[in-house]
Simulated scan of single mutants.
Amino acid sequence: MSPGVLVVDDEPLARLAIVRLLREDPQLRLLGECGDGASAVRAIAQLRPDLVFLDIQMPAMTGLDVIAAVGEARMPATVFVTAYEQYAVRAFEANAVDYLVKPFSRERFAATVQRAKLRLAAQAGLGSQILQALDALRQKHDHLQRIPVRDGEEVVLIAVEDIVWIKANRNTVQIHAGGRVHELRETLSALAARLDPRDFARVHRSAIVNVRRVRSIQPWFNGYHVVTMDDGQRLRMSRYQHESFLRLATVRGDE
């Protein structure tokens, strides 16, 4: 069976251009098209495409947010579509990742599709080259303002200021916010790198807290401390997290 393709772009004209060119290729099957990140996450889970044309710049939920919600390990082979971000192009070129810059020519599209077919033949999804390019992109992005998480068939966007604390759970994290617990397929270290260090601190190897949501810090024994959050959650602070402790105390003293 020929590879199935999903097109994700919030611009109707750009989406139409990709769809028209894909339909001219008898070796590919168009599975569907999405105009926003949330529907893209659902479509990837339901349609299981082999290849995704993914726009980076989308409102509310960007292409990078889509990958975070799906999970890098589960993401199909991907061609990134970008309109103007030169640093994105440099990141893709440096890591030999397939991309399209809008507007693109028929020749450029054909060359990109041919490379994508070769990757599919080699069964290459989000390999190390793509992950390196994503890391480069993330380093250029501002700190996270919202985090997309799955909630049944929907994708919920959690505002980072609503987060009370985050717990590591193997290769996932549990985000405590708004009286609920949301699971995200990302390591604690990877998520911590994307959060503003002025607002979030690691108090233990398996826990990060929102410093603005700390109610009190109390000494315990053997140099440990107990951090009480404003939702009543009590967390033990590692004695090796002295810098976090000092910063937490300073923030509370300034409020």
Rank of each mutant, 00 (worst) to 15 (best):
M1W: 09
V8S: 15
D10L: 07
P12E: 11
L13Y: 02
L13W: 04
A14P: 02
A14Q: 03
L16N: 15
L16G: 15
A17L: 06
Q27K: 04
G32N: 06
G32H: 02
G35I: 01
D36R: 06
G37N: 07
A43G: 12
A43K: 08
L51N: 13
A60V: 12
M61T: 11
T62K: 00
L64G: 00
A68P: 12
A69K: 00
V70L: 00
G71M: 04
F80D: 04
A83I: 02
Y99P: 09
V101L: 07
R106G: 04
E107Q: 11
E107R: 05
Q114Y: 07
R115C: 00
R119Y: 05
A121Q: 07
A122S: 14
A124F: 05
G125A: 03
G125N: 03
L126D: 08
G127F: 08
G127D: 14
S128T: 15
D135F: 03
A136Y: 09
K140G: 14
H143S: 07
Q145H: 13
I147C: 11
G152W: 00
E153P: 05
V160T: 06
E161G: 12
W165D: 07
V173W: 00
G178V: 05
V181Q: 07
E186N: 06
L188A: 13
A193I: 04
P197K: 12
R198E: 14
F200K: 02
F200Y: 01
V203M: 01
H204F: 08
H204Y: 09
R205Q: 11
R212E: 13
R213H: 14
R215P: 12
I217Y: 02
P219C: 06
W220N: 12
M229C: 06
G232F: 10
S238F: 10
S238N: 03
E243Q: 10
S244N: 06
F245V: 10
A249Q: 08
D254T: 08
D254M: 09
